[in-house]
Design a binder for these strands. Structure first.
Length: 516
DNA sequence: AATTGGCACAACCGCTACTGC
DNA sequence: AGCAGTAGCGGTTGTGCCAAT
């Protein structure tokens, strides 16, 4: 940055690449100021050499001066990117190591799509590299209908959260804006969980490891300082506020603490994923294998807190969240007026779009900010469920979309024909379904009124056993997202293990009390 | 052998934050 | 305070390679 401003005349000549006049399509370049064609596209070795030489002489920065001093017909931005992503001497050229992959998973669970920050945690790696790596990994998991975050990551997250609660202090140097944590918007009426029975078989996985029950998790938020101490990554405060002020208005932080863990822990085929990615399964629960304690900087799980935030889409979180899967985007044309997928294989996103705008209390401007976090899904799910209650018998309902035939529980298969005339626009498109995309196999009947059939598509053969295994607990509907939602997120309340399971009162209490 | 589709990577685009004037 | 220039970030698109058909 020091040299950033020392070439004012260059800045006059070469503004940003995008400011360049019409591109010279013929040669792939652009006309700079109508005079100098700027090349686009892949860099040649000669160009690389020129840029390297320039940086050696002048140092980094003042990239717009590169063209002038080096003769490169590239815009400054392109030069900076080329240098940062490929020419920097400290870059690692090798593939990601298992440790690095592990770290990426942890970091993403913590901070979401903050690639630059993640890159800062991974010396020699660039944000672009990490981003590409992550996206391809996501695609792979998506196709396989597997959750993004391994349960062990969630477990660590949970532990960290819990530790943070126990300590009553933040274990991070990150700052946070207390204003972001205000909320009283969320509550989950009991009716919403009556039908969300959990298969004991499914639950046993998680409960055997630690108490992942929603109630226990949510309870942990009650009265805890942690609830107000969710920490954001050290992104620009203004940005954080921008991204989060809406969704956290009224949120006590508790949901973010526990919820994302649920499904992840229930049946994630962690070993397989780890094996596939070269990690050493299972994830080291005690983090002893990590380069550094991944969660000691936690909190604020970006994923959980939803940072989503593309700098270019800084709408309120509460808008229609989108799962941070850049490659899984679908147009509305794929859906009918209900948002029902018209394709026999609707995407997760298309399912997401079934969830329409939440009540206006959450949606401040109708924008559709993207979501990268699990919390968003959780929050909206809660809200959806809440709304479902309202609509199914509560005059205060402000929702209006059918939510029919949700067959949630393997154990309580008769209970969940419910109609949620809910406004199914997810606060950010990151509805339960999008959460499923992160946490559950993607298949089954649509809980949103029309059947869909997104059978997991195990692109990798070694994932198939896990996909099948996930169906096992309930051969009839075990692979359905709605079932998994119920089984993974909402423990049954009829099994006598109150501490282990969701109690409406707990939820209500944790979520800030009931609302009229 | 040719074609096709998916994957991984590189690069670009749009936007925002920061800084200096 | 407002503006302009620059750097940086995150999302998206383009491209080449490779395996499957």
């Amino acid at each position: 940055m020091s040299s950033m401003m020392n070439e004012s005349e260059d800045s006059k000549r070469s503004k940003d690449c995008r400011d360049s006049p019409a591109a010279d399509e013929a040669n792939g370049g652009e006309m700079m100021g109508g005079m100098i064609p700027l090349k686009k596209g892949p860099w040649t070795s000669a160009e690389d050499a020129i840029l390297i030489d320039y940086v050696k002489k002048h140092g980094e920065g003042n990239w717009n001066a590169v063209q002038k001093h080096s003769g490169l017909f590239r815009c400054g931005k392109s030069c900076r990117l080329r240098w940062a992503n490929h020419l920097r001497p400290d870059l690692k050229k090798c593939a990601f190591t298992p440790e690095e992959e592990n770290r990426i998973i942890e970091l993403h669970a913590t901070m979401g799509n903050k690639w630059a920050r993640m890159a800062a945690e991974l010396p020699g790696r660039t944000d672009n590299e990490i981003k590409n790596h992550w996206n391809t990994r996501i695609k792979r998991l998506q196709r396989a209908g597997l959750p993004i975050y391994p349960p062990d990551v969630c477990q660590q997250l949970y532990k960290t959260i819990q530790d943070g609660q126990n300590l009553g202090t933040l274990q991070t140097g990150d700052t946070y804006d207390p204003d972001l944590m205000q909320t009283d918007h969320f509550k989950i009426p009991e009716v919403e969980f009556k039908n969300l029975e959990l298969s004991r078989d499914v639950l046993s996985y998680s409960s055997g490891r630690f108490d992942t029950s929603p109630s226990s998790m949510l309870k942990q938020g009650v009265g805890s300082s942690y609830g107000n101490a969710l920490v954001f990554p050290t992104i620009h405060p203004a940005k954080r506020l921008k991204e989060s002020q809406t969704i956290f208005t009224g949120l006590d932080g508790c949901v973010g603490r526990g919820m994302p863990v649920f499904d992840q822990l229930t049946d994630y085929p962690c070993g397989k994923i780890i094996e596939r990615s070269g990690l050493s399964p299972p994830y080291d629960p005690d983090l002893s294998t990590y380069d550094q304690p991944p969660w000691d900087v936690f909190p604020g799980s970006h994923a959980i807190l939803n940072d989503n935030s593309s700098s270019s889409s800084n709408g309120p979180i509460c808008g229609a969240m989108k799962l941070e899967l850049p490659s899984l985007q679908y147009s509305e044309s794929q859906q009918d007026s209900w948002g029902t997928p018209t394709s026999p294989l609707p995407s997760l996103e298309s399912v997401d779009t079934l969830i329409h705008s939440p009540p206006t209390e959450m949606q401040s401007d109708g924008q559709s900010p993207r979501s990268s976090g699990l919390l968003d899904a959780v929050l909206y799910e809660s809200r959806t469920l809440k709304n479902s209650k309202k609509c199914s018998g509560h005059p205060t309902s402000d929702v209006s979309v059918a939510f029919v035939g949700v067959h949630v529980s393997p154990l309580n298969t008769s209970a969940t024909e419910w109609e949620v005339h809910a406004d199914l626009n997810s606060p950010s498109g990151h509805s339960a379904s999008s959460l499923f995309s992160e946490c559950t196999p993607v298949s089954g009947s649509s809980p949103y009124g029309r059947a869909y059939n997104v059978e997991p598509e195990p692109a990798d053969q070694d994932l198939i056993p896990y996909v099948e295994a996930r169906k096992a607990p309930n051969q009839t509907d075990g692979n359905r997202p709605d079932v998994l939602l119920g089984s993974a997120w909402f423990a049954p309340s009829n099994n006598g293990h109150k501490d282990q399971f969701f109690q409406t009162d707990d939820v209500v209490a944790v979520l800030g009390g009931d609302q009229p």
